[in-house]
Design a protein around this nucleic acid. Sequence first.
DNA 1: CTGAAAGCGCTTACAG
DNA 2: CTGAAAGCGCTTACAG
Lengths: 333, 333
Amino acid sequence: MNQVKIYDIAGAAGVSLATVSRVLNHPEKVKESTRTRVLKIIKEKGYKPNANARGLASRRSTTVAIVMPRITRASVAEMIQGIDDSAKKFGYTLRLFIGADTELQRDLWGDVIASSVDGILFMNDEMTPETFKLLQKTPVPVVFVNAISQTAQYTSVLIDDEKCAYDVTKEMINRGNKDILFISTEHKYTVNDMKQKGYEKAMREHSLPLNIIYSSGDVGVNEKDFTEVIDKKVPEVALAVRDSMAISFMNVVIKKGYKVPEDLQVIGFQNTRYAVLSNPKLTCVETPIYDIGNQAMAYLTELMKRNGEHQKAQKEHANIYVPYRMIWRESTR
Amino acid sequence: MNQVKIYDIAGAAGVSLATVSRVLNHPEKVKESTRTRVLKIIKEKGYKPNANARGLASRRSTTVAIVMPRITRASVAEMIQGIDDSAKKFGYTLRLFIGADTELQRDLWGDVIASSVDGILFMNDEMTPETFKLLQKTPVPVVFVNAISQTAQYTSVLIDDEKCAYDVTKEMINRGNKDILFISTEHKYTVNDMKQKGYEKAMREHSLPLNIIYSSGDVGVNEKDFTEVIDKKVPEVALAVRDSMAISFMNVVIKKGYKVPEDLQVIGFQNTRYAVLSNPKLTCVETPIYDIGNQAMAYLTELMKRNGEHQKAQKEHANIYVPYRMIWRESTR
DNA sequence: CTGAAAGCGCTTACAG
DNA sequence: CTGAAAGCGCTTACAG
């Protein structure tokens, strides 16, 4: 293991372990001359305090857990990048826990706790009450990322899905469209429900009939479902909660001989990389997923700091809404 | 923190700490009756050993580091899913370290070591000699994932890119094509170089002229570059190291009024989700990225086990090639 | 401002 | 098969 230990630094600098430790953790408590001397040696020897020892002794690990049901959703990677960039800035390191609700309850949550992270970024939407109980017992701050905590007890960082869907729908209505299809996921996600709510609100305000379809995440299934819909009637506008669904829908329609955006306009709700690879390019609500990750981590840092000072922070709850914007491309006119 | 400690279990079971620890770590050394009794209590109380304490005392953390330059590449998420599924099976937990070569050298690698992981999955292609030195000093096993260690000292888990590109190119030649364009990245990745090598080999064997273009990862730049190429001449076949590039190329060609696959056939080298969202759907070499992650983690587990037994395993090196296969879709005929 | 000492929660030889 | 004890590498009151 021949790693440099704190002893080595103390020895080389002619000070005690305690002083080296202080230089790292409470530099203001150390006389400047010794501080610089110690820091110099730390740098020379490339000393990095053992994370386990530090975690054990201090009960803080400068480590944060990311808990998510799946990592392969299109948006997750970029969110993690946002989280990581922020984590680096604040000196935190990331642990990854991937598992759905059931796994969380069985085993995974124990791992999260056992690893004594300082905070948790939680992306599992739609918790069962059991999971919620688990969360409640957690001794460290939790922030929801692009997922809503239905319990209004934790802060979520996300876009205001309902307002956003409302705005888009309204905009398309104002442009003279009446037959607007809303495409959502079969699997229930709160964020998608919020979007649907926004869509419904706008449609109702104009006394327009709702037209909603739920399909899976699988492109093959999408195409089958969408074909059925189209065979009945091609809507004027399709809004899809996922870019991949928007594009699938568009492709199906085009193959049937219709024109986009002339016969049908399509809008996606994410602005993933897919959006510019489709033909025509997909108009999107841009969900600034990188920013969401970035801000969630920054906010969690706040909470962790407070958590260190007084116990029990985080009872108040206020969601943090990250601004979204429209990116008009070729699939609308 | 009111977490259950090993003391609590020992107390409740009427045994010593040592015995509880043994039940968890060397169950065969404990009499069955006490073992079951202790296990029952562990389960009841939901005891999970503190990972820091365990890591510190045992010098093994059942934790693995994933080191990668960026997480937003299309293939990474699925690879991580593969890694995670395997990690779960073997009882490991994941830490994420995202950073390019320079960051590794400056700081990040120190974090990796300090966190005392039991093994490292390394995805940074194209290391500088400095990074390589860092790797050499690492006390734990390292496995390269979908990236080649140019030094033939570490095992890589990946597909045989050269052979694969050779096979595809040859197949397209055999089908009567002569003008085959190879599209690669501007940024140098060893895996892409290997593909290029395979392409070149096949072309040379048939005395066909090489036609290679390097472009960026940005779709906008791609389109500009590709337009230039096409304005000179549309090739019969385009092979692209990334699906996104293949699709961009295809879109540019289609917009110019050509037909795919009639005038141009296009093949991608990844089979990401993009492939089925394009229109026409993209023919691909399927890089089984999930399997690569999965097997890499499984192999790392082997190495870590050995590393525990005799010191210094891992001098021999043999890459593990995961089989690839062609998925013929609509962009070829 | 600095050092000696206790302790974080485990694991693992070492005895028995 | 089991327990007492040392130790993993740090941090942090507590003295001084």
